[in-house]
Design a protein around this nucleic acid. Structure first.
Length: 276
DNA sequence: GTACAGGCAGTAT
DNA sequence: ATACTGCCTGTA
C-alpha cells in the first residue's frame, strides 16, 4: 500500500513507521508481515479501515474507472494506491492554506499551526502535535496565525473557522447532501473556490464523484483527454471552464471519478519526478 | 535580480 | 462570460 501524502500533509516516515496528525489524534502506522498495523493515540484502534477506505469495493471501483487505456494502465501500475478519508475540519482548514503554493510550503504552514495551536503528544519518545480545532483558530488573532507563514491566507482560514463555529459549514449535513448542493454551500465560504471545494468533498465528505482539477490534473487532461471536451482549455481554467471540465470527467469516469483523479494526479507527480 | 509554486477574490471590459 | 491582477513566502 502506498500513501499519497499530497492528501495528508502532516504525515512523516520515521524508521519504518508513518506518523500522522489526524484531527485530535496522532497516529502511528507500522508494517507487519505483509500488512499494516495501526496504533493510535490515545484511544483509536484499528482505524486503518476508515482512514484508508478499506471497506470500499476497490475491485468494482477500479473496474468502473478503467474507461480507457491510460487509466487501466495506471490502475495496474500503481496498485495499492488509495484515497485517504480525512477529518472534515482538518481537511478544509488545511486546504484553504494550499492555494497558490507548493506542498513543502503547505507542510511548513500546517506544522507551524499545529505546534502553535495543537496539543503536544509524545509517541516513541518523539513529540508530535494534534491538529488545532476551529475554535482555537477562531480565537487566535490574525497576526499570530500569519506568523505561521500563511500570509494572505489568514483571511481565508479565519473565514472557514468562523463558518464552522457559527454552523454555516455543517459537515454532517454536507455529507448527507448531494454533490451539487454540498458544493454550493462550500463555495459560499470566503477562500473556498472550485478546486478546494472538490478536494474537501472527495477527501472528507464522501463525494467520490468529486474531480478536483489543479494544475497537475489540468496538464494531464490537456495531454490525454482534450478530445472529451468541446470547449478549448489550457492549464489556466476560468470558473466556467472548470465546471465544464469537471462535469465532463464526472460523466466520463462515473460515480468514482475521484479515484480516477487520484491515479492521474499520482502519475503526473511521478512523471515530473516530484517527491512531494 | 526574476520566475515560479497543487487558487482565490476583486475589478473592469 | 472572460481577462487581468495582486497576493505571502520560500526556493531555484
Amino acid at each position: 500500500m502506498s500513501v499519497n501524502s499530497g492528501q495528508v500533509f502532516l504525515w512523516e516516515m520515521i524508521g519504518d513507521s508513518w506518523f500522522g496528525t489526524y484531527g485530535s489524534h496522532v497516529i502511528k502506522i507500522s508494517p507487519v508481515d505483509g500488512g499494516q498495523e495501526v496504533f493510535s493515540f490515545p484511544e483509536l484502534r484499528s482505524c486503518e479501515r476508515r482512514i484508508f477506505r478499506l471497506d470500499d469495493d476497490i475491485v468494482r471501483i477500479l473496474s468502473e474507472i478503467s474507461r480507457d487505456q491510460l487509466v487501466s494502465r495506471l490502475v495496474k501500475k500503481y496498485a495499492g494506491l488509495r484515497l485517504i478519508r480525512q477529518e472534515p475540519e482538518q481537511c478544509v482548514l488545511s486546504f484553504v492554506c494550499a492555494s497558490n503554493t507548493n506542498i513543502p510550503m503547505i507542510r511548513t504552514m500546517l506544522r507551524n499551526l499545529t505546534r502553535k495551536y495543537g496539543e503536544r503528544v509524545v509517541v516513541d519518545g518523539k513529540e508530535f502535535f494534534t491538529f488545532p480545532s476551529a475554535k482555537k483558530i477562531h480565537r487566535a488573532t490574525k497576526p499570530e496565525i500569519c506568523s505561521c507563514g500563511l500570509g494572505y491566507r489568514v483571511k481565508a482560514i479565519k473565514a472557514v473557522a468562523e463558518s464552522i463555529i457559527n454552523g454555516n459549514l455543517d459537515f454532517e449535513a454536507l455529507q448527507k447532501a448531494k454533490y451539487e448542493d454540498a458544493k454550493k454551500e462550500l463555495l459560499k465560504v470566503y477562500g473556498i473556490g472550485n478546486k478546494i471545494a472538490d478536494c474537501v468533498m472527495l477527501f472528507s465528505l464522501e463525494k467520490l464523484e468529486a474531480f478536483p482539477i489543479d494544475v497537475w490534473i489540468a496538464r494531464s487532461l490537456a495531454r490525454h483527454f482534450k478530445c472529451l471536451s468541446d470547449s478549448k482549455f489550457t492549464e489556466k481554467l476560468s470558473p466556467h471552464q472548470y465546471d465544464v471540465l469537471s462535469d465532463t470527467m464526472r460523466a466520463y469516469f462515473g460515480r468514482y471519478a475521484g479515484y480516477a483523479q487520484q491515479y492521474l494526479f499520482y502519475h503526473m507527480r511521478q512523471q515530473a519526478g516530484r517527491k512531494w
